[in-house]
Design a protein around this nucleic acid. Sequence first.
RNA 1: GCCCCCAUGGCGAAAUUGGUAUACGCAGCAGACUUAAAAUCUGUAGGUCGAAAGACCGUCCCGGUUCAAGUCCGGGUGGGGGCACCA
Length: 879
Amino acid sequence: MAACFCLNTGLAQREDETMANERYNPGPVETKWQRQWNEAKLFEAKTDPAPGTPTYYVLEMFPYPSGRIHMGHVRNYAMGDVIARYKRAKGFEVLHPMGWDAFGMPAENAAMQNKTHPKGWTYDNIATMRTQLKSMGLSLDWSREFATCDIDYYARQQKLFLDFLKAGLAYRKSAKVNWDPVDMTVLANEQVIDGKGWRSGAEVEQRELTQWFFKISDYSEDLLSALDGLEEWPAKVKTMQANWIGKSKGLAFDFGVKGAPDGFEKLPIYTTRADTMFGPTFAAIAADHPLALELEKANPAITKFRAECDAIGTSAEAIEKAEKLGFDTGLTVTHPADPSWELPLFIANFVLMSYGTGAIIGCPAHDQRDLDFARKYGLDVIDVFVPVGSEERVKDVAFVPAKTDTVEYVCWMGEPGTVQTCQQAMDKTLAHFEEKGWGRGQTQFRLRDWGVSRQRYWGCPIPVVHCEKCGVVPEKEENLPVQLPYDVTFDIPGNPLDRHPTWRNCTCPSCGGEALRETDTMDTFVDSSWYFARFADPTTDTPTNPQAADRWLPVDQYIGGIEHAILHLLYSRFFARAMEITGHLGVKEPFKGLFTQGMVVHETYKGSEGQWLQPAEINITGEGDARSATELATGQPVKIGGIEKMSKSKRNTVDPDDIIATYGADTARWFVLSDSPPDRDVIWTEAGVEGAHRFVQRLWRMVHQIAGAETAQADGAADLDLRKATHKTLAKVDQMIPSLRNNAAVAQIYTLANAVEAAARGGKTSTPVLREAMTIMLQMIAPMMPHLAEECWQVLGCEGMVSAARWPNVEEELLTEDAMTLPVQINGKKRGEVTVAADLDKAGVEEAVLALPFVESALSGKPPRKLVVVPGRIVNVVL
RNA sequence: GCCCCCAUGGCGAAAUUGGUAUACGCAGCAGACUUAAAAUCUGUAGGUCGAAAGACCGUCCCGGUUCAAGUCCGGGUGGGGGCACCA
């Protein structure tokens, strides 16, 4: 089948035929209804809903205005729109806004490449993408739209920054930071993936810089424990966040340092394996540990060693290959339990300053890194524990059991031969050390403070001033916003704000003297950490309107990609807490329900030269294994590759504009909603889209048939059958839509469509019943294919617009049956069925089953060993 | 290395949470309509054996619990994801 986008049947042919036979033409219909919804202001959330009206806030992660929307957007926004339209029909006052995550690097890259200005580039892209989103017919409240690069938005973000500063939630410190040499900016830990910049892919370097940080680490415990309360979040995301926060419990103690420089007599250590305190043979500190820096002053060899450590990259491969390097300081440390026990102190390249205290106790028998190090430098290996009953001692492989594993202790608190779990030994050791005053229990987190300074132009300026006399001074609130200058150039790399001739010059808010502005801007993840709160009232002068925020927040249903499981979602949770402390928000958790949707994926194609080809550039023939493809332009063979995420580099994208132009927005929406479970990837295929469009046309024919139907002799039984089918479907769909199980809901609607069509053809179902079935079906379809539903609604002659109609009620009595058919099993295998009255009691069912001929012959006169009757479910006869 | 998830026809997937496995869709095959095609409609469809009735097998593999297992438990295989010199 050809992979071209043209629907070769011609949508508007056969003008001579009657309306009912005419194909549905989505283009004009869709624009018509979009205009009517807009004029009726159907989707604008009321600021003052009638008392007692329940509210519902549904939000999809707002897009970065990269230029054009892609199929991932279509899926994300279609899913959100189903919820929004459904909840509206259910009587909720719904907030469903849209905005733009508009600051960021690509605008500057475009500026450098195309001699445009980031601002113009960004707002042009927004205009394009807004038109595209509007063509999808999403029920968005466009009156609340904003972009994070709007001065109205980032001005309030600067106010938030100042409030955080006042509350001690923002601070400046000199720290080793991740420096991206290509983007020429600092990256947060969360933005470094495998040692490479998340955007540029460049190898990240370590640099010492003074930076602004948000104190997210203050909330480590809270951010972790509150995950339990997020019942409507995927377990996967919660696990990922918990791992990222990385809580561990262990023993903190001090080594005494013999011959230490002044002020370094004690060396704080943290270990999660308290039981290894009985087998240490060395101690080590990080290359950038304060003690190492102090010792370096008197020893140039340390400078050389530290440079060696810095030379090793931070990528996963580099770390994998890196040899354990150590520098013997010549100092020794003394064991807290026994001051006569001395251990050599090394500076080691595998010790991280950023975790724990930047110093470790080395127990080679039970840590592979420590063992490698010990072997290299000829240090002792002391076995603390061995597998129970084993004579083996550690040689080249460290023995590292799980905390729950039972082992035999060779040396442990003077009780060699003790058999217990590692956890028990650790707990007892810790208690013992605390009792003796040798150490204390301590909780440690992996989560670091969030570095937010970026050396970029296209971001929110950090509203502080550097004064020679007063130091770093926050800008006065009445001087906000600190506005980005427009006249900047991008001809050389680096931050244009740094080299702007006048913008930096200002007066010190404190002394009134000459001062310089901070030229760093905020990480764009700051922008997206509170936008959801701004939507509650995007025009207010303060960051939030607390009254409006209270009405809408938390977001009832948030929908977006799993790629934000840590970064954006963790930052937003921190922001909600910080905004609560500073009086801008009344909730700690911003998102009550979270759904992470799968990607839209597509087959890939490679031409004879190894170049990637677009789906539109090739022709596919054959089926299954016999499928083969050729390049349209050259006739050369094409290799059909794997199914992968749609991406520009693999050229396997499908442009939503093309699909909407050919099939209409409804078809595109229906397809991305119907095929796969929403949290799994959906494979985009041309056949699948055509299948979805076939249903659009089929529904169109059905509605005309039913609108014109006149049933002469109706049959009560047929009427009841269809009414039951209709209400059973409604009951199921009513459960599936709120849990976002759209694929299952679609399947139910298909089943009902089959039943309605059969009833209409059968001629025994009365017109009102057919119309009721059709009406209810349209209402179930409306959240997914709103334009088609609206047009069909009109054809049927229903009141008003289906988008404004209340969701139909299930008639409960139609869900029950008078008689039911139960499967009958013999020894657990289905052998037949029995049909009995629905209200027949167990004894009655047993009697009926035993009277069945195939059961009688199986029993051959003997009574069954057991007879299991599960009412309404199944019968099992055990011989 | 540590943590998490997944596995069902040719394909995407359902299965009321332990109760008729494969609903619904896609692709296929056969037929109707048509001069023909498209569009549309009807039928068919897990595997093996059988003319048929039917029998047996069947939800990645091996075992277990149960009257009953795709679903629960133990062990494995394969695939995907997250974290990672984290002490």
